[in-house]
Simulated assay, not measured.
Amino acid sequence: MPAQAADKLLHHTTVPEPWPDWFATLGLPHRAMPGAGRASTSFSLLTQAALSGLGIALIPRCLIEAELASGALVVGASRAGAGQEGLLPVLSGAEAAHLPALRTFRGLGDGGGGPGAA
């Protein structure tokens, strides 16, 4: 995964390997991604980062129900099963329409390639 793309993956510091775990939950191939993404100690900060268009954040649905209902945040993958920690990949609804790379991410689990797919 290119470093620029990995920087767009946002997660909480209490989950040790959130992105590899999330990709594995979907049964997707992925390369080892130690330290992939940017971490925060606050789900509130991750929510604000996602709302601001800084990347795709893994956040528990129960903390962002209002943002999902309003469309301010959208789920970033078409088959976004919550990982073992109950985390969903979400990003700004306003940014989603302007990110061509999101088409690839949203296709995850639909037979499309994933990070590190051959």
Rank of each mutant, 00 (worst) to 15 (best):
M1G: 10
P2S: 10
A3V: 06
Q4R: 08
Q4S: 13
A5F: 15
A6D: 07
L10T: 00
H11L: 13
H12F: 10
T14Q: 15
V15N: 08
V15A: 12
P20L: 07
P20W: 01
P20K: 14
A24N: 13
T25H: 07
L26T: 12
G27A: 05
G27I: 09
G27W: 05
G27M: 00
L28C: 01
P29T: 07
H30V: 00
R31I: 03
R31S: 06
R31Y: 01
A32P: 08
A32M: 13
M33Y: 01
M33K: 00
M33Q: 03
P34H: 01
G35N: 10
A36G: 04
A36T: 02
A36Y: 11
G37Q: 06
G37W: 07
G37T: 12
R38L: 15
S40R: 13
S40I: 12
T41G: 14
T41S: 12
F43Q: 01
L45W: 13
L45P: 00
L46M: 10
L46V: 06
L46P: 10
Q48E: 05
Q48H: 10
A50S: 07
L51W: 12
S52E: 12
S52I: 01
G53R: 06
G53Y: 09
G53L: 04
G55I: 01
G55D: 03
L58F: 09
L58G: 14
I59M: 02
P60Y: 11
R61Q: 15
C62Q: 15
L63G: 04
I64S: 14
A66G: 09
A66L: 12
E67M: 09
L68P: 13
A69F: 09
S70P: 02
S70K: 13
A72K: 01
L73T: 13
L73D: 13
L73P: 08
L73C: 10
V74N: 12
V75T: 11
V75Y: 05
G76V: 14
A80G: 12
G81R: 07
G81T: 05
A82W: 11
Q84G: 13
E85V: 03
E85N: 09
G86D: 05
L87N: 03
L88E: 01
P89Y: 03
P89C: 02
P89G: 04
P89I: 01
L91K: 09
L91R: 11
A94Q: 15
E95M: 14
A96I: 04
A96C: 06
H98K: 07
H98T: 10
L99T: 15
L99G: 03
A101P: 09
L102H: 09
F105E: 06
R106P: 14
R106V: 10
R106G: 05
G107M: 13
G109K: 02
D110F: 10
G114T: 08
G114R: 02
P115G: 06
A118P: 15
